[in-house]
Simulated assay, not measured.
Amino acid sequence: MSAILARGLTKKFGAFIAVNQLDLDIAPGEVVGFIGPNGAGKSTTIRLLCGLLRPSAGTASVAGFDIARQPEAVRAHIGYMSQKFSLYPDLTVRENLRFFAGLYRVPASEFETRSAFAIDMAGLAGREEALVRTLAGGWKQRLALGCAILHRPPVLFLDEPTSGVEPQARRRFWDLIQAQAADGVTILVSTHYMDEAEYCNRIALIDAGHLVAMGSPGTLRGRHLGGALFELEGTPLGAALAALRQMPGVIDATVFGDGLHVLLHDAQDAPALPEKLRAQNITATAPRPIMPSLEDVFVQLVSHRAASS
């Protein structure tokens, strides 16, 4: 049985379609990254699957419960961590844990064991009586995850949990996510950090409420680019970008750092690019073939969808 299953899931707010005919099928113990820009529909989809919003059309089930007909049962079987830390800053670490244990109806006889696990996981041993507002962002983040799994839910929704957190803390947080998945917990985690998608079993790319692609990181890089990718440096950068986009055989060109990624229909056209740029008074390095990043794939898929709509 699927841990999360959605068919044609749609949410409208008046004339605005936030989620458009979304299909998902996520297996137990799978970590799926929900990737897309701000406003793509990630948070709305998660709130639908948590039973917090009623769908305008379509169906979905989470942990075997229908999100429209059984929202209370859904919420009893999930953990949820929102974009902003869902902790109470003027309560201590232990008081937050006790509050969420009561909210999730954790048996009193099990509170000490489960709270000790959460404290150890967050690295907060010895700081149980510290006010949450005094904690660094990474500690708050891990404590929020500990609060979300106190009742040992089979499905966990994490809505941009690492937003605004330093890279080292983000990496430690992903270690905790992987540990939960190893215990059989299904995790849907939204993020706009493309590098974090590499930690997921599969990735769902979403744009303007549409699911544009879904697959493993390797599958997405291998199947969805539609050409050969090269990297080069051009000066001036803006003029090089504009010139490349007008050249025959160039599918797309984008700025990456102080260089350019150029997608070609045919890799044999790459050696001629510097000479063509020099003809327009633009200096350029020799193109180097590169492995596409997930950001390359996402940009190309979104551009293709926009051009065909």
Rank of each mutant, 00 (worst) to 15 (best):
S2V: 00
L5A: 13
L9R: 13
K11Q: 11
G14L: 11
G14V: 07
A15Q: 15
I17E: 15
I17L: 12
A18L: 06
I26G: 04
E30L: 11
E30V: 12
V32D: 03
F34L: 11
I35E: 08
P37Q: 11
P37H: 10
G39A: 10
T44P: 08
G51T: 07
R54G: 12
A60E: 03
S61M: 07
V62T: 03
G64M: 06
D66L: 04
I67A: 09
A68Q: 14
Q70C: 05
P71M: 14
E72L: 11
E72G: 06
V74K: 06
R75F: 04
Y80M: 12
S82Q: 10
Q83L: 01
K84N: 10
L87R: 04
L87H: 02
L91V: 06
T92C: 00
R94M: 06
E95L: 02
L97V: 01
F99M: 11
L103P: 09
Y104R: 12
P107V: 00
S109M: 03
T113A: 15
S115D: 00
F117R: 15
A118G: 08
L124G: 00
R127F: 01
E128R: 02
L131R: 07
L135P: 02
R142A: 03
R142P: 03
A144R: 00
L145E: 04
L145I: 05
C147A: 15
I149N: 03
I149S: 01
P154R: 08
P154T: 08
L156T: 04
F157R: 00
L158C: 11
D159S: 06
D159E: 10
T162Y: 00
G164W: 01
V165I: 13
D175R: 15
A181R: 13
D183I: 00
G184V: 04
I187K: 04
V189K: 05
H192D: 02
H192L: 02
E196G: 08
E196K: 12
A197Y: 08
E198P: 08
C200R: 12
R202S: 12
L205V: 13
H210K: 15
H210I: 00
V212L: 09
A213Q: 12
A213T: 09
M214E: 11
S216G: 12
S216Y: 04
G222R: 10
H224Y: 13
L225T: 04
L225H: 09
A228Y: 06
A228P: 02
E231I: 06
P236R: 15
L237Y: 13
L237I: 11
G238N: 14
G238H: 15
Q246P: 00
P248H: 12
D252H: 10
D258W: 04
L260E: 05
L260T: 07
H261N: 10
V262I: 11
V262M: 06
L264T: 05
D269A: 15
P271Q: 05
P271G: 03
A272G: 12
A272Y: 05
P274N: 12
P274E: 10
E275L: 14
L277E: 01
L277G: 07
I282G: 02
A284P: 09
T285F: 02
A286I: 09
M291Y: 05
L294D: 03
L294F: 07
L294K: 08
D296H: 07
D296G: 02
F298M: 05
Q300F: 03
L301H: 08
R305H: 14
A306D: 15
S308T: 05
